[in-house]
């Protein structure tokens, strides 16, 4: 499997390594269409489901599209990105709960931003190093993402729910505050 490691920087935005222009943010989430970009790490889907449920009940979004990436290493393929571009207003990405998947989650967030879609990327705090390294490599140092404590994979569903609820204010802030503040 190690032989099949693929560089997730390939095909990501800003191939000239210029800073990715982040998407404009809505003032509020009410009435917007939510997309979920899930990786295959254990509990990632549950985490984003809990986030979506809370965003629906507390902020009035509608979850319209959920897509699971084919692997934790790759960024989302172009056709998946197209779906998000066509069908969603904001996207939550996660969960970066390992070295390669935190890096590719940041690459996904930057791809979505480049496509004009505000994104909130969730990574576990043990993998800030690889997430930040990807942001730097993509020419966008300081790109912000939401962190939750490591590990996520071993949590019970109730534990996942608690984490998702705890992360909610930061996720909402990332999706609604001015883009300049998201890439400090």
């Amino acid at each position: 499997m190690f032989d099949s490691i693929i560089d997730p920087t390939v095909g990501a935005p800003g191939n000239d390594r210029g800073r990715t222009a982040l998407a404009g943010r809505p003032a509020q989430l009410n009435g917007l269409r939510l997309g979920l970009l899930v990786n295959t790490k254990r509990n990632a889907a549950d985490f984003l489901e809990e986030v979506a449920a809370a965003l629906e009940s507390e902020y009035g979004v509608t979850t319209v599209l959920t897509r699971t990436k084919p692997s934790i290493v790759h960024p989302a393929p172009p056709e998946m990105l197209e779906e998000f571009r066509g069908e969603t207003d904001v996207v939550v990405v996660g969960v970066g709960d390992c070295g390669s998947c935190s890096a590719s989650a940041v690459a996904d967030g930057l791809q979505l931003e480049a496509a004009g879609i505000p994104a909130a990327v969730i990574c576990s705090d043990a993998f800030r190093v690889s997430a930040d390294a990807m942001a730097n490599l993509q020419g966008t140092p300081g790109y912000e993402y939401v962190t939750t404590a490591h590990p996520v994979a071993s949590l019970s569903r109730e534990g996942v729910r608690e984490r998702a609820v705890a992360a909610l204010p930061e996720i909402v802030g990332m999706l609604t505050r001015p883009a300049a503040a998201v890439a400090s």
Binding site: F2, D3, I5, D7, T9
Partner: peptide, 30 residues
């Protein structure tokens, strides 16, 4: 699948070790 690609790992290691990325001979498990 959790290891980042070598170029990214080298870019992470370089400032930590105080050497250029292409001066790091990096060996992965396989």
């Amino acid at each position: 699948e959790c290891l980042v690609p070598k170029p990214l790992m080298q870019s992470m290691l370089a400032p930590v070790l105080g050497v250029q990325p292409d001066s790091i001979r990096l060996t992965y498990p396989t």
